[in-house]
């Protein structure tokens, strides 16, 4: 019996030490992780809005209700993560959207929308699709299809629909749909919120 208690104590001590050590590492790496994410975000902003200066971007609050409606109105399983105004909205907006329907996981993109509703560009923050297939979304030939188009919505060539046509990446229709869904969500949110 006493052996059992001793064993239990040892394993508890190991677990507690491991937990505390983890907490420590977590605290230490919290800042670098936040920095890495922040940098990635800034880069994405600049990429979709090359004209604007970093100081021009300003985060505003996301209207959760409208975000939900926006996703539902374009039949996307997507969330609006962050919305930025560029020069207070005079130049346009940058909307970060996560679409949950990617093939390998969430697809998070940043969409730049000029004040007249033109998509200025998109950039990927999170994409964990199959290398050589879904990952091709990161190639200009795919993502530049969205840039400089003024439309209410995009559709993937295979599915048909209204608005601008997007040629799907061959062999990665699911990824193409997810990206398009995310862009459409951003556009719908832009229309309802601004």
């Amino acid at each position: 019996m006493s052996k059992m208690i001793k064993n239990a104590i040892i394993i508890t001590v190991i677990t507690i030490v491991a937990g505390v050590a983890l907490g420590l590492v977590y605290e230490i790496t919290k800042v670098p992780i936040a920095n890495a994410e922040e940098n990635a975000k800034r880069e994405a902003w600049q990429k979709v809005f090359p004209k604007a200066e970093l100081a021009d971007f300003e985060t505003t609050e996301v209207d959760e209700e409208k975000a939900k409606e926006a996703a539902a109105s374009v039949n996307a399983n997507a969330l609006i993560d962050e919305v930025c105004t560029v020069k207070g909205g005079d130049e346009g907006y940058v909307i970060t959207v996560t679409d949950k329907e990617g093939y390998g996981g969430d697809v998070q993109i940043t969409v730049g929308i000029a004040s007249d509703g033109t998509v200025t560009g998109i950039s990927f923050l999170e994409l964990s699709e199959t290398a050589g297939l879904g990952m091709k979304a990161k190639e200009p030939s795919f993502y530049e299809q969205y840039a400089n188009k003024k439309t209410d919505s995009f559709y993937v060539s295979k599915d048909g629909g209204e608005g601008e046509k997007i040629d799907a990446i061959s062999g990665a229709t699911i990824t193409s749909r997810a990206v398009t869904g995310a862009v459409n969500t951003a556009l719908a949110y832009y229309r309802s919120a601004f």
Partner: peptide, 12 residues
Amino acid sequence: TMVQFLLQGFVP
């Protein structure tokens, strides 16, 4: 988990 945090912070 530690390796996971380190990767997340330094090699995202």
